[in-house]
Design a binder for these strands. Structure first.
Lengths: 226, 226
DNA sequence: CTTTGTATTATTGTATACAATTATTTATCG
DNA sequence: CGATAAATAATTGTATACAATAATACAAAG
């Protein structure tokens, strides 16, 4: 079947436009650009060694996504993820990750379960070593794997975007105090519920997992991160 | 303040690219194009009387949205909303419309309340006249107004997209049997709960409203619509 | 008649050119 | 000196040109 699932996979990372898109997006989400900063086509093109054409296409995509505001005949302006956006996203995510995990208990294949457990084992390994860089990647992977297992391209699409949008925050929370230990334990619990095909429990655990991260954000102080 | 809210407002409908984007999007969502149909840049450009440039930019936006698949160096292909997508969207919407309405009770202004009631009154008027064309527009407007009132650009963005994606389905359900009467009654109930600032009830009513539409879709037979 | 390799054609990817619009500077007048 | 208006520059919007890649047609060999 030609179902493609992850929007991430779908995005063309190898054409010039794809690379420009990823580059600008990363610069916005990582906070390297400032809010309302003007993005001039020629400047970005020169910086990346390409012409205006791929830059324009990338900017139009970012506009649709809401990460860039385009005023016709004027220019493109950075539109960052705000503190309120992050809060909203986490509240929405706590619902949708719950739904996603519920669906995953229904649709996940044995192969996907094995992949998920592998990710989990690696997470447990690197948790002991306090390797936060790697843990961030594995945390992302664990969630992405659940998104795919939900068998819903719609849910996968939305959750993947949200996951990207709170990148900066996740990088901080995962390195905060004992959060990584707790987070990995929660991942283990979610995994066991999914493997046991216990939809109720899986949904509840996933919702709680997101809520716990929210609490961590409160403690860390969101304003200091963004 | 320069907060822009609705992504619909944000989209540039007056540049060539904006018009091309709306045109292709409408042709996909309305079912005028067939699944996996190839979208050739020159052909679409010729049809709309523009060059390839705005067509390409529009196709890239639709790719990001997931309504078009682009295979590098090969072409762009229609990727329609499937029956499963519609089901998934309604389940997700029942959660998110609930949340949206809850937030609306918190943030809605007196002015927005008046606008909402005006929409509602018009709906009640046209419900009596069985004017389904107008009712569809008013139903859209009612929901969009609630999205804005939620004061969450993230939620507004997601829900607005979903609302567009199930356009075809909504046009059918609204004209089905006594659904429009029931739907308008439910809108009235939601409005009253919001005006009374009763968050619990507003959320519950909104969730139920979406679920009732889902039941209507089951009866209508989704496969016959798409 | 089928298969395979080559030539041709069609289509996309990127760069550039030109037009339209907006921002900036400069000159003029009060 | 300050305000206003014209001239100039900078930037975006669109079209087109050229290069790279993929699809197609066709011919020759088996």
């Amino acid at each position: 079947m030609g179902d493609r699932q992850s929007p991430g996979e779908n995005r063309d990372k190898y054409s010039l436009r794809g690379r420009v898109y990823e580059s600008i997006r990363e610069d916005i989400l990582s906070g390297r650009y400032q809010q309302h900063m003007e993005l001039k086509e020629t400047a970005i093109g020169a910086e990346l060694g390409v012409s205006r054409t791929p830059v324009r296409e990338a900017l139009r995509q970012l506009e649709l996504e809401g990460l860039v505001d385009i005023i016709p005949n004027r220019g493109a302006y950075v539109n960052m993820i705000t503190a309120k956006d992050v809060n909203d996203i986490y509240i929405i995510r706590s619902m949708l990750e719950g739904l996603c995990t519920r669906w995953a208990t229904e649709y996940i294949t044995e192969e996907q379960l094995e992949d998920l457990e592998e990710t989990l084992c690696l997470s447990e390994y690197h948790t002991k070593k306090d390797n936060y860089e790697k843990l961030y990647e594995l945390d992302s992977l664990f969630h992405e794997q659940l998104y795919r297992a939900s068998n819903s391209r719609i849910l996968n699409h939305v959750l993947s975007d949200f996951h990207d949008y709170v990148k900066r925050v996740r990088k901080v929370t995962i390195a905060y105090q004992g959060r990584s230990v707790k987070s990995t334990e929660e991942h283990r619990a979610i995994f066991e519920a999914v493997r046991a095909r216990n939809a109720e429990m899986a949904e509840e655990l996933a919702k709680e997992h997101v809520k716990h991260t929210m609490e961590c954000i409160q403690v860390c102080g969101l304003e200091k991160i963004l």
